[in-house]
């Protein structure tokens, strides 16, 4: 159907409006498995107050725009993360906290930790540190907003485009775990 999908209004113009709106209203679903979850309350409450920028926590992935991976991911939790990510509505963004999703961090030689989250989900913004301080988290949110504004936060489009490859990587990780389970 026409109006919003490029027939009447130019697709680029519409995208711009959409970007402005979604930049100022990022609702997040935080996947609190790692230690980064504890950095979020100061960000939400009166010290740093993320609601200034229209951000807020949401209860379910259907309602949310941003997925926060707050720390290390095991293969078992990766399954849930992928499920949650796929239930979110596009445009959707991923922010990963700390060094674990980047290169495994202190779990670099762990047998069941996901070393590079980027192989399984498109990450838009990384926050370095172990753990990042709330200032860092705030900074990441602002960075994400800037990226959205410039139209560079295209992780969800990447996920759609390279869906097969992402699925293959995910399947490999899951199979690895299953073989291990059967062996044990």
């Amino acid at each position: 159907m026409g109006l919003f999908d490029g027939d009447i209004m130019k697709y680029e113009d519409w995208n711009k409006i959409s970007r402005i709106a979604s930049r100022k209203s990022l609702w997040m679903v935080h996947f609190c498995t790692g230690c980064g979850a504890i950095e979020l309350p100061p960000v939400m409450t009166s010290r740093y107050d993320m609601e200034r920028f229209g951000m807020g926590p949401m209860a379910t992935p259907r309602q949310a725009d941003v997925l926060l991976i707050t720390g290390y991911l095991t293969v078992k939790t990766l399954k849930r993360v992928v499920n949650v990510y796929e239930q979110m509505q596009s445009p959707k963004y991923v922010i990963s906290f700390g060094s674990c999703p980047i290169n495994g961090g202190m779990y670099w030689d762990s047998y069941n930790t996901v070393k590079r989250l980027d192989r399984y989900l498109p990450v838009d913004v990384y926050v370095g540190g172990c753990m990042p301080r709330p200032e860092g988290v705030m900074n990441a949110f602002l960075e994400l907003m800037k990226l959205i504004d410039e139209g560079k936060a295209r992780g969800w489009e990447k996920y759609q485009k390279y869906y097969e490859q992402y699925k293959r990587n995910q399947k490999m990780a899951f199979n690895f775990e299953r073989e291990k389970d059967e062996g044990a």
């Binding site: 519409w14 959409s18 709106a21 979604s22 100022k24 209203s25 725009d65 509505q89 596009s90």
Partner: peptide, 14 residues
């Protein structure tokens, strides 16, 4: 903020 939220929700791509 309410207007922004609603605009965002109504312009979701999927």
């Amino acid at each position: 903020q309410g207007f922004i939220d609603i605009a965002k929700l109504l312009t979701k791509k999927t």
